[in-house]
C-alpha cells in the first residue's frame, strides 16, 4: 500500500509510504475527502516525508486537500517536510501560506487539538 490511513479518535492520519505519481496524489485527495465525511473526522494529518520532492503540483494538491477537508469540517496539518525539501520549496518560490505544517506527529496532534478546540468555542 502506498498510503496508510489510520483513524485516531476524531482525526485521520495519512502516512505516505513511497514517492507518489501525480495520479496517486489525486487518488489520495479523493480518498481522504470521502473518508473525512464517512468517519466525520475533525482533523487530518498528512505525513509527506516519503515524497521525493514537493513541487508545484504536490503543493497545489496538498492545498486543495486542505480546502476540501475544511469544507467537510476538518482541519489539516502537514508533517514530515524534510529540511532539504523546505529549502527547495523556498527557492522555487512556492506559496506555503495555505498549508499548516508541524515538525512531527506529536506537534501535529497538539496543533489539531488547539485548532479544533477553538472551533468548538466559537460555536458556543
Amino acid at each position: 500500500m502506498s498510503v496508510a490511513i489510520l483513524r485516531q479518535g476524531d482525526y485521520l492520519i495519512a502516512s505516505i509510504q513511497v514517492d507518489l505519481s501525480d495520479s496517486q496524489v489525486l487518488e489520495l485527495r479523493d480518498e481522504l475527502s470521502e473518508r473525512i465525511g464517512r468517519v466525520r473526522a475533525r482533523g487530518l494529518i498528512i505525513d509527506v516525508a516519503a515524497l521525493d520532492v514537493i513541487d508545484s503540483f504536490v503543493a497545489r494538491s496538498l492545498g486543495s486537500i486542505a480546502i476540501t477537508a475544511r469544507l467537510r469540517g476538518a482541519e489539516t496539518v502537514i508533517t514530515g517536510i524534510e529540511p532539504d525539501v523546505a529549502i527547495a520549496m523556498v527557492q522555487f518560490d512556492l506559496d506555503l501560506a495555505p498549508l499548516r505544517t508541524a515538525l512531527d506527529l506529536d506537534e501535529a496532534l497538539s496543533l489539531l487539538d488547539r485548532l479544533t478546540q477553538g472551533a468548538g468555542e466559537d460555536e458556543a
Binding site: D52, V53, I54, D55, E82, D84, I87, A88, Q91
Partner: peptide
C-alpha cells in the same frame, strides 16, 4: 549535497511534467 540533489529532483519533476 542532499539539498542540491533535492533542488535538482524538483526541477526535473516540473520539466518532466
Amino acid at each position: 549535497s542532499q539539498t542540491d540533489a533535492t533542488l535538482i529532483a524538483t526541477a526535473i519533476s516540473e520539466i518532466a511534467r
